[in-house]
Every structure is written in structure tokens, then in C-alpha cells.
């Protein structure tokens, strides 16, 4: 594999109305090629109607060390959870 290859993350929307989901990663020279390979590698069985590719290097991820300050303070704020709403049965993609 050439030294120019970059890692891309692939997101696929399986049908209209749903959001894009991360399905995996691949190597490509550039965005346009990454999109084509995403089509060939991840949609061979009609999995998608829309593809996003993002350079893995462009993703900024939270770290394990962030957990305490990021998430712990939310544990005692149950009023932020929409647990009291009843979802109509027709809504199946929340």
C-alpha cells in the first residue's frame, strides 16, 4: 500500500429518514476515492442510500481521562432525561 494512503471513517445512512451510522474505516488516496471504495466495501448488499467519508485524522475524540469532568456531573440530573414522555407507537426511530 502506498505511503500516500490515508485512513478514512465511513458513515452510511441505510434509508431515508435515518441518520448516518459509522460502519468502519478504509484506506484511500483522497476523498473521492474513499467514497468509491466505501461504496464497494460497505454497500455491496444494498446497505445504504447515502455515504459520508471523513479523514480519521480530522476526528477529535474525547479521552478516557475526560470522563470524570464530562459525564459524572450528569448522573444526579435525572430531570434532563425525557423519561416521562410517552412515544407514539408509530415513532420507531428515536
Amino acid at each position: 500500500m502506498s505511503e500516500h494512503m490515508q485512513l478514512f471513517e465511513v458513515f452510511i445512512r441505510s434509508r431515508r429518514g435515518l441518520d448516518h451510522k459509522h460502519v468502519g474505516s478504509l484506506h484511500a488516496e483522497a476523498h473521492a476515492q474513499a467514497l468509491e471504495y466505501a461504496r464497494d466495501v460497505y454497500t455491496r448488499r444494498s446497505e445504504g442510500v447515502s455515504i459520508w467519508v471523513v479523514k480519521s485524522a480530522d476526528i477529535v475524540a474525547s479521552q478516557e481521562a475526560d470522563c470524570e469532568s464530562f459525564y459524572d456531573p450528569l448522573d444526579d440530573k435525572p430531570y434532563r432525561h425525557a423519561t416521562h414522555y410517552q412515544l407514539p407507537e408509530e415513532v420507531d426511530s428515536m
Binding site: M1, L26, H27, A28, D40, V41
Partner: peptide
């Protein structure tokens, strides 16, 4: 490489 292998097979 793997991606091109799959693409060619397609």
C-alpha cells in the same frame, strides 16, 4: 490492497 481488491471483484 484490500479496498481495490474488493472493488475489482465487484
Amino acid at each position: 490492497f484490500l479496498e481495490e481488491d474488493l472493488a475489482l471483484s465487484n
